[in-house]
Amino acid sequence: MLIRTEDLTKTYDLGEVEVRALRGVTFGIEEGEYVAIMGPSGSGKSTLMHILGCLDTPSTGRYFLNGTEVSDLHGRALARVRNKEIGFVFQNFNLLPRVDLVANVALPLVYLGGMNRSDRRKQAEGALDSVGLGHRLKHRPNELSGGERQRASIARALVNEPSILLADEPTGNLDQKTGREIMAILDELSGAGKTVIIVTHDSNVASHARRTVEIEDGAIAREGRA
């Protein structure tokens, strides 16, 4: 099992009040699965995504990723896990505006270390080519359409060959047609054996996944398989 969580909780201490964002989430994701995590805003799905993506740590409970317990890791070790195991795709792309696409996509390799600049650029160019942006290498993000930007961010997420592709509302900032193109890419990646997790409130998007996990009020409310 690629991902296994045991009774994850997350409590935010806001002084007077405690906010319990997660109230005990136990589930697993097999390698190669295509999973949608759904839920309305405030349900705790974002918190769960942050923990699954190693951006945040649970208050209690355990999280095993690829056989390693990561719930105890902090700082540099967690940054290392994010770098090697997780590829993020954000709703608003989050590309660095002042550098070209190759530099953007090569960024995870910079933090991975051990590669020289030209090797990194070569690998980044390969990733951009695989999402159909081989002709846009030297462009900056603001010279591209929304769909192209999201494809670039998928290329960035893939460049390190992570075990999980974690997409947070990947079509949220795109029109329907472009959104479908992006989902087609994710479908294709899943078909090729990549583990893909989509966090969304859009049931059309979720319908692409073969399994849905619905979060409500900090806990899993329903699970379903297509």
């Binding site: 993506g53 951006l55 700082g75 540099r76 940054a79 290392r80 994010r82 770098n83 090697k84 993020f88 954000f90 989050n94 590309l95 660095l96 960024l107 995870p108 933090y111 991975l112 960035r156 390190n160």
Partner: peptide, 16 residues
């Protein structure tokens, strides 16, 4: 701030 968030998300440590 967002840039810093992105960098951290894709693997930059605080030290980086």
């Amino acid at each position: 701030i967002r840039e810093i968030g992105v960098r951290k998300a894709i693997g930059a440590s605080s030290r980086d």
